Simulated assay, not measured.
Amino acid sequence: MGLPHFEKCCCFFDLKTGNIILGCVNAFLSFCLFVAMIVAACEFGAMEKDTAKEMEIFKTVESIEVDARLSGLYAMSVILVLMFLAKLLFDVFFIIGVIMERKGIIKAYFIMWVVFMLLSMFTFFLNCEYWGVKTIITEVIYLSINVYAMLVCHSFYVQLNMREEV
């Protein structure tokens, strides 16, 4: 038994148009998150420098722990910047692949999307005890939209394969 197949996206768009729309939405959101992570990385970097100056004056255990946390947050934000840059590039290539109906690009995007979503889910489940209700609801909606986008992408990929067989 495989994944379910759709004939239409959002009940009235054909699969090609739906994938282009979902790809543009994902590219826009990836760009927004890319910029947000750059801002966060700059803020954590500045905070890290400030705590380093304070540590020279007050060498306490608390200041060392704060510096270690800020270093970890800075490193994580830089990693997320690179991840969202890669995702933005994949989104742009996906839109081009759908317009040109290139199965290889669509398959690579589908695989990347599955990996990215699994990483997001693992991060969500590992940290959900620290988040509030609004964040959890937002993440559940985000994951639901991702699952739908992946199913529409897969349906279009199958549709392209069926066109070649005929």
Rank of each mutant, 00 (worst) to 15 (best):
F44H: 12
L89G: 11
I20P: 00
E7Y: 05
V152D: 04
I96G: 10
E101G: 11
I20F: 08
M83F: 08
V158M: 12
F44A: 09
E139I: 03
F93N: 10
A41D: 04
R102A: 10
G2K: 04
C24Q: 07
Y130Q: 09
T138P: 04
C128H: 01
L151M: 07
F122N: 12
T123H: 11
G97F: 00
E43H: 06
I111V: 15
I96A: 14
Y109H: 11
G72S: 10
K103L: 13
V66W: 02
M47E: 15
C32R: 02
A68N: 10
A75D: 11
E48G: 07
M83I: 14
S155R: 01
A108G: 11
S155G: 11
E164R: 15
M162N: 14
S77T: 11
L33Y: 09
Y148C: 02
A86W: 11
L126M: 10
L3F: 15
V133Q: 08
E62M: 08
G72V: 05
S63T: 02
N161T: 12
F110S: 06
A52Y: 08
D14K: 14
K49C: 03
E48Y: 12
D67K: 03
F116C: 07
F84C: 00
T123K: 00
L119K: 12
K134T: 08
C128V: 12
V115P: 02
A40S: 13
A108Y: 05
M37R: 01
I105D: 06
A40G: 13
E62F: 10
V39Q: 14
V35Q: 09
V158S: 03
I141D: 10
P4R: 09
G45R: 11
F110G: 13
I20K: 06
Y148H: 05
I145P: 04
T135K: 12
E65H: 07
I64N: 15
L151C: 04
A149M: 09
Q159T: 01
C128Y: 05
